[in-house]
């Protein structure tokens, strides 16, 4: 619990500081973090919101960065059996990376009870919101964050996320395809098409290369 909380707090605090710096109001920030509750989604949303990209492509990017959660909720079928429908509805909202990882690990030893699930989730959620607010308030004292090289923090964050998936089968092929198509579209058709076209080509390549023997499928790397 403590390591998870201390891993989440900095992301949340930095997001708070960055969002306020990019022109979000405190209320908008708290609504964002409270209702989306996904660090990658929020960074992408903020980044594209500032650039004034059309809503549909923001949504597509948000869908993309959080897509791994489809696999989490698919896996959760195994341990959500004891939950009522409304408990499930709430449980999905709270199904973030550390929540999933913890439940998956605990499930090997004992069943996941709603009480366990929601106590754990509530603690992480509280840490998340408090550090978010702290970051926003103290971030304003720092002034212009680009002075500290924080303007490139989002691309760096995305790049490390990509590298963290390097165990996935066909990683290099997917990466090279997406980057190449992205660059070509960026310099011909222009933004924001590079995200959609680059992304879709990488996904297609992965699907086409796939072989039916599922014995050693690539596993998602651990990250926040």
């Amino acid at each position: 619990m403590v390591p998870v909380a201390s891993a989440i707090a900095p992301y949340s605090a930095v997001f708070g500081a960055l969002a306020v710096d990019q022109g979000m109001t405190l209320t908008e920030l708290l609504v964002t973090s409270g209702s989306i509750y996904a660090v990658a989604s929020q960074y992408v949303m903020l980044d594209l919101w500032v650039q004034g990209v059309p809503i549909w492509s923001v949504l597509l990017a948000v869908l993309a960065v959080n897509f791994r959660h489809v696999l989490y909720s698919a896996a959760s079928v195994r341990w959500l059996a004891g939950f009522s429908t409304w408990q499930k509805v709430l449980a999905f909202f709270l199904l973030i990376d550390p929540q999933y990882a913890t439940c998956e690990a605990r499930h090997k030893r004992r069943p996941i009870t709603p009480r366990y699930y929601f106590t754990y989730a509530l603690c992480i959620y509280a840490v998340w919101m408090i550090s978010n607010l702290t970051g926003a308030v103290f971030g304003q004292l720092l002034g212009d964050v680009s002075r500290f090289g924080l303007d490139l923090m989002l691309p760096m964050f995305f790049a490390t996320l990509v590298i963290s998936f390097r165990q996935t089968s066909g990683f290099a092929v997917i990466l090279i395809t997406s980057v190449a198509v992205s660059l070509i579209s960026y310099f011909t058709i222009g933004a924001p098409w590079h995200i959609t076209l680059g992304g879709i080509s990488g996904i297609l390549i992965a699907a086409l290369r796939s072989r039916p023997a599922p014995a050693t499928q690539g596993k998602d790397a651990q990250h926040v």
Binding site: A61, S178, G202
Partner: peptide
């Protein structure tokens, strides 16, 4: 995630 983030 690999495809879309790297394209981004």
């Amino acid at each position: 995630p690999i495809a879309v983030l790297s394209a981004l």
